[in-house]
């Protein structure tokens, strides 16, 4: 039981004790209503004044609320989603944004490629071919774009070592993302490849030509189109007839 007094009678002289002994002195009645008799008076309310600091607290909070709504209210506009932006900037078209292809490529690489090819691009001997200091990477970019779009399966040779595994297709990445990641692996000094960047337009072109392809490429198929991997390919010394106009 939860009363604080133990005896069925409240101690005499206690404040707010509301009993009159003679009315409830019948013993049977007391036993029947023991719980009810020992409980204290029904709750009531005092009228202590509100503490002064509370007035100040309410004022400060209301003031803060006003400032917050003015600052981050989004101008009460249904199409204003960024609380820090101003509406003028929202409608101004500042033209295409300059994208740092290396930074974007590094991010795309770490999210998609690094699991197999390694964060430092060294791959895994005999299982996943390297992208750092690799002849394939410094070859014709169209070959790389094809591999990225539709994947690659079967035996290939990278830097003279044989690999036989399957690479997933990354056709879901955008032209810009593919261009960025290829630019990154071809030009970033940390990976040791010394080639030239890949443009999103080239990716779009290859995608338009080969985007319908669903099954992964194989080494011989690519060799048929682009010739053997040289590791030092550029549009000027390109040996395959199909890519000569690039």
């Amino acid at each position: 039981m939860s009363d604080s007094d133990k005896s069925p009678y409240p101690p005499s002289g206690e404040s707010r004790s509301t009993f009159e002994g003679h009315r409830f002195s019948d013993e049977g009645l007391q036993r029947k209503h023991a719980q009810l008799l020992r409980e204290k008076e029904e709750p009531s309310e005092g009228f202590s004044p509100m503490p002064l600091f509370l007035v100040f607290l309410i004022m400060i909070l209301s003031f803060w609320a006003g400032i917050y709504m003015v600052e981050y209210g989004g101008y009460f506009d249904a199409f204003h989603f960024d609380e820090t932006a101003t509406p003028g900037i929202l409608v101004q078209d500042t033209g295409p944004q300059e994208v740092d292809m290396l930074a974007l490529g590094r991010r795309v690489y770490s999210q998609n490629c690094a699991i197999c090819h390694g964060a430092d691009g060294s791959g895994q001997a005999g299982v996943f071919p390297p992208v750092a200091r690799a002849d394939w990477v410094q070859d014709n970019p169209e070959r790389l774009i094809k591999v990225t779009l539709a994947g690659l399966a079967g035996p290939i040779e990278v830097n003279g070592r044989p690999y036989n595994n399957a690479m997933t297709a990354f056709g879901r990445l955008s032209d810009q993302q593919i261009a960025a990641v290829l630019t990154y692996i071809r030009t970033d000094p940390a990976l040791g490849n010394n080639s030239y960047p890949v443009s999103p337009e080239l990716v779009a072109q290859v995608r338009a030509e080969w985007g319908a392809r669903r099954n992964a490429w194989t080494g011989p198929e690519l060799e048929e189109i682009h010739g053997p991997v040289t590791g030092n390919w550029s549009p000027s010394n390109g040996s395959t007839p199909e890519t000569a106009e690039e």
């Binding site: 009363d3 204290k40 009531s44 509100m50």
Partner: peptide, 15 residues
């Protein structure tokens, strides 16, 4: 709280 402790709630205004 006031029932078990036998003491009125501190302040009606705060309530």
């Amino acid at each position: 709280i006031p029932k078990v402790l036998g003491r009125p709630i501190y302040s009606y205004y705060l309530s």
